[in-house]
Every structure is written in C-alpha cells, then in structure tokens.
Design a protein around this nucleic acid. Sequence first.
DNA 1: GATGAATGAGATTTCATTCAT
DNA 2: GATGAATGAAATCTCATTCAT
Lengths: 194, 194, 194, 194
Amino acid sequence: MTRNRLREAAMKLFGEKGYDGTALSEIAKEVGVKTPAIYAFYENKEDLFMTVFREAMQLYNTFIQELLKDQRSFGAKESLHRVLTRQYEFYQQNPEASLIVLRYVIFPPTFLKETIEEAFLQSDELLTNIIEQLIKQGIEEGVIREQPVQLLVDAFLNLMDGLSMQYFYYTSREVYERKLNHAFEMYWNGATTR
Amino acid sequence: MTRNRLREAAMKLFGEKGYDGTALSEIAKEVGVKTPAIYAFYENKEDLFMTVFREAMQLYNTFIQELLKDQRSFGAKESLHRVLTRQYEFYQQNPEASLIVLRYVIFPPTFLKETIEEAFLQSDELLTNIIEQLIKQGIEEGVIREQPVQLLVDAFLNLMDGLSMQYFYYTSREVYERKLNHAFEMYWNGATTR
Amino acid sequence: MTRNRLREAAMKLFGEKGYDGTALSEIAKEVGVKTPAIYAFYENKEDLFMTVFREAMQLYNTFIQELLKDQRSFGAKESLHRVLTRQYEFYQQNPEASLIVLRYVIFPPTFLKETIEEAFLQSDELLTNIIEQLIKQGIEEGVIREQPVQLLVDAFLNLMDGLSMQYFYYTSREVYERKLNHAFEMYWNGATTR
Amino acid sequence: MTRNRLREAAMKLFGEKGYDGTALSEIAKEVGVKTPAIYAFYENKEDLFMTVFREAMQLYNTFIQELLKDQRSFGAKESLHRVLTRQYEFYQQNPEASLIVLRYVIFPPTFLKETIEEAFLQSDELLTNIIEQLIKQGIEEGVIREQPVQLLVDAFLNLMDGLSMQYFYYTSREVYERKLNHAFEMYWNGATTR
DNA sequence: GATGAATGAGATTTCATTCAT
DNA sequence: GATGAATGAAATCTCATTCAT
C-alpha cells in the first residue's frame, strides 16, 4: 500500500515541481512516512521517478491504444472530434500522469533524455497511424476532400499538440472547451468536401 | 562584461536544465569565474533567474510587437503565414530565450508562478489582438470567408501553440518546416473563401 | 543523547564565544559528530540557540523560585545574605547557564531582543517580590529600620547586579567572596536598626 | 574624515551587534563608502576594532582621571555621589563608547582577551584608588564612621558595577535615577556616622 | 516495513581581504 | 583615497542515501 501511495505522491509532486524541485522528504511527508521508508520500495530517487514516469507513459499509451477501438464505429468526423475530447478527458481524469508526460517529454532530466525520447516516439508513431487511418476512412467515406494524407495528418497532430499546451496553461474549463471546438471546426472546414 | 556573460550562461543553463537543476557553480564555471563572483552582480539565485527570465520575456514581447509593423504591408494570407515563419525565426535566432519562455510559462518554479503568469498574459493578449486584426483585414479584403472572428483567432493561436511545442521536440529542420506549412495550409483552407 | 550533548556543547560555546562567534561546526565537533547531524534535532542555528537560552533561563527562574522556599525559616538578615550566597552557588553550579543568561540579557542577538527582554522581565519581577517580602519581614521583626521599602529593595537588587557582573570578570574565588561579604555588610549597616 | 566616520560607525555597530555580528560592509554602508575603502585606513577588521576599543577605553580612562580633579573641592559625601552621577553622565554622553567598554570587558572576543583584561585592570585600579582616597577623606572629615577602608571601597565599587549593568538594561531615565539615588542613600546610611 | 541517527556531497550565501585601476 | 571585480575560506543548510535496530 505504502508503495502505491508513494508512487502517487511522487507522481503529483514530480509533475508539479519537477524532478530536481522535489525532495524525497516531501514525497514521504505527503504519505505520512519517513524518508528512508522510500528505500524499502524503490532503489533510489531515479528509480522512483522512472517508475512514476513509466506508469504515466503507460497510461498515456493505453489511452492512445484505446483510441483504436472507437474507430470504425463512427463516421470520420465524429471519430476525429472524439480523439480530441478523449484526449481532453484523459487529461482531466489523469491530471498528474498527463502533466508528467507533457513535462518530461519536452524537458527530460539529463539522465534520461534518451529513454524518454524513445518511449515517446513509439506512442507518437502509434497516434500518427491512428489519425492517418481515420483520415483515410474519411476520404473513403467521401466526407474528407481528396488531398495529401500527410497534410491532413500533420495539421491534426499540430492541433492536438496545441490543445495539450493550452490545457496546462489555461485553467478555465469553458475557455478550453471553446478553444477545442473552434480549433476542430476550422480544421474540419479545411478538410471537408463542400 | 562578466555580468552579461553570467546572464547568458544562466539563460542557457536555466533553459536546458531548469532552475533547480542548475547550480550556480555551473553557471560560474561556464564563465570561468568562481561562484561567489555571481553575488557581485546579482543578489541571489532568484534574482539572477528573474533577470534572465525578464530578458527572455522581453525579447519575446519585442518580437510580438514587431509583428505589428508588418501588418498592412501584405495581404492577410501572407501576413498570417509570416507570423508563423517569424515565430520560427525567433526561435532559431533566440533559442535560449525561447526555451526559457516556453519552459517557465508552462512550468514556473513555485516562487514566481504569479509573476510569470501575469507577464505572459500580457503578451498573449497582444498577440491575440494582432491575429484578430489580421483576420479582420482578411475578411475585409474578402479573402477570408465571413465567419465568427473568435473561431478564426482561436484556431490560429492553437496552431501557433502546437508549432511551439513541436519546435522543441522535433529537432529536424525539414520536418518542422513541413509541419508548419501543412498546418497553415489546412488552416487557410478552412478560413478562405473558395 | 546526541540531542542533549549538542545542547550542552552549544550552551558552553554560545556562552563563551557568543552567538555569531560560534560555528555550528564547532558545536558538532565538540560532540564528535558532523555538522548536519545537528539538523536532525534542531531546525536551525536559531532554534538551537533558543533551546539553549530557554533552558538557561528556566534554570535561572527555577533558582529564583527556590529562593522563596527558604524565606520564613531564617531571620531576615540571614535570609538576605543567603540570597547572595545562593546566587553565588547558582553561578558556580551552573556556570554555563549563568553566562548565557547574563550575556544575552545584556546583549541579545538582534533577532530575539524582544523575546529575551520579556523572558527576563518576568523573573526580574519575581525576584523583586521576593526581596520585598524579605525586607518587609525584616521590618516586622524589627531588625531593619523603618524606611521606604523601595529604597531597600532597589539597593539590594543593585547589589545583586553588581555581584553578578563581578562574578564574571573577577575569577578569584577569595576576592569574590570578600566582595560579596563586604557589599552585604555595608548594605546591612545601612538597613539595620542600631 | 572618512577615517573618523568609519571609526564612529564601527564603534556604534561593534557596540550594538558585537564583533562577530558586525560585517565590515555594514560599517562601510553606514558611512556611505564601499568596503575596501576601510583598508585605506585600517589594516583589517581586528585593527579597526582595536582602534575603536582603545578609543573607547581611553575615553573611559579619561573620565576616571577627571574624577580626580573634583576630589578635594567637595565634602566626601558629595564627592562620592558625584562619582555616580558623573559615571551616569559619561554613559549618557558617550553611549557607544560605554557600551563597547562594558561589552568587551565582560565578553572579550577570544583574540584579545588578554589585551583587554590588562587595559581594564589599569583603570579599575585607578578607580579603586580614587574611591579609597575619597573614603579616607570622609573618615578624616569625620563624616564616615571609622571602619575598614576596604569594606567601604568594595561596597562602593560593587554599587558602581550594579549601576553600570542596570544602565544598559533599564532604558527608562526616571527608573535609573531613582535606583542610583536609592543605592547611594543606602550606602551612605551604612557608611556614615550617626 | 519502518524509523532514528548519521553522513558525504554539495548547494547557496556571507565575508574579509586583495588588487588593479 | 576609493572602487569594482574577484576570490578563498568558511558558514548555514539541504538532501539522497545508508545502516542498525
């Protein structure tokens, strides 16, 4: 139990204050335990961090893999829009994991720059594939205008990245939802046949 | 001189390794000076950081203000596209300042969360105004289809944010330029009259 | 144990060399421990000092309170003389605590001027009351000549203060005892009926 | 000029905050000059302190020597009382020097314990002599009762020491003057023929 | 599993002092 | 005389980590 509570506290604090900005003692205190207790479960700070990061990354990966299941059930437009809302839901339901992923993908601590880049490229690739399929589906369906797939994919991924950043610095829910819908609407305007 | 070289070294290191991850001794060593020399020029670590952050923020603000000058000289489409390429140039020409702004706007050290948020909201507002004007101009010119301005603005800002994030984790120049152009093309498809 | 030994070493060194003149490393070394060990028991230097000062002050207060118990058992003359000898004994048996009280009552470190003044005024008041009672007792007994009580109290307290100072700069035992007895004899000459 | 202003600032600060508690930079700032300027006039911190201490000690010595001049002009009672009031005046007119003398006679910094003890014993001896003469004069005059001179001297010096201490921890003027007069009155009661 | 005690390494900061200008 | 720049030494304090219990 303590093991998990430590991991959760670490996830929260590493996300909020960063790896160097978080002392093991803070994590221990959050759990109501003394610092050395951490070493009963984790080899050292790095190990705890890696555990946390892996878990966050895995949650994120799972989320992306689940995007696959939805696919064929809806039309392309709804599917793409759902990708955005589900990303949004994921952020809301896993705020700490999301923060970790975002933070350390952009700003990895020196000692695991490479590990993180690899881990992330994988899920980035998977996501790219999913989007690509949805778009192809849309083209097949005739709702998306015939045009280079990469153009549509790049733009959509860009849209997702923009929304990710905005999620973490605009706190207001309404503002964010408006931005999400506006961004998608414009995208769809550009993508759709008319 | 030393004062400036310290500031530059600090900008580089705070950007790369974060506030807590950067020791004053590293900054001093980079400049070829002993740690206490820093205190001849800056009150303490926080002061040095704030100086660095303010400078970076000011460079960024200046960049945004200069976007204004371009405005009427081109058509709306070119103007908007130029906003993106100039942002790109700014990142290339001021890689350290950009990194600082991006990093600390999203992940401020606890002790200056508020200061940073304020500072950033200002330039965000200015940027929003500029984009809004360009879009209105485009509507007047008849090249942008009549539709709610906020829709167009939100989507464009989202696009810029997406590109900002991508700039810092896709190192390849070609990939980035492709993404920039694709994102803009899709945007313009959605915005333009046809 | 270490906690107490640190407190004792601190009491000794703070008394001898002053707050600013004593490095935590000296205190640690005296106890045979490394400096950071101090932080396992005391929050910081100030905390250690305050602990030490409070303890010294409390020893002193206890000493004063115990003066009360003696009271009625002897005649006024012997009682007053005993006050002096017991103060003397207290200094001898608690040389470090005495030094701390004396030193920091007169020369408090800036950061606790007020705390110390308050703490001291309390015991000063108690002492005043005790002396006052002894003197009234003496007047009742008829051994002290009828005269304003405050006159007798002020003079006696002054005498005690004088002896306190002298205790710390005349090291010789004989000299001190002579001075004590002379001072008291003269006092009594002035106080007594004849 | 700067030399003197530095000495004055040092006297004030060394008196208030102690040798270790006073940074050269504070002294310099008080004078409106940068720290290294001090080294144009004084070899180092110790030198500055010793200059200050010597000056204070010399003022004190001068004061004691001037007590001699008064001597035969008044009766013994008035002379002795004048010793106290002049000591009081000295404290009032030279608060900083007095504080220095008092502080470092009781609590010398380790590096000049011996120097200070010597310096002080001299003036202590001189003072003792003066008091002794006044008392002998009083006995000759017949106003002081025949009794061992040392008894009277010890008691009087004790009285002076008590008043010195009290001067520095009772701030109120009225209280101090009352205490002075009361202490002397009692002393005189014990000393005088009746 | 958990903790108290302790430490080594190192971080920030202060300060007396030097030196070239 | 005075200062700006710099430093060595050292002080306070933090923190990850170890180890015996």
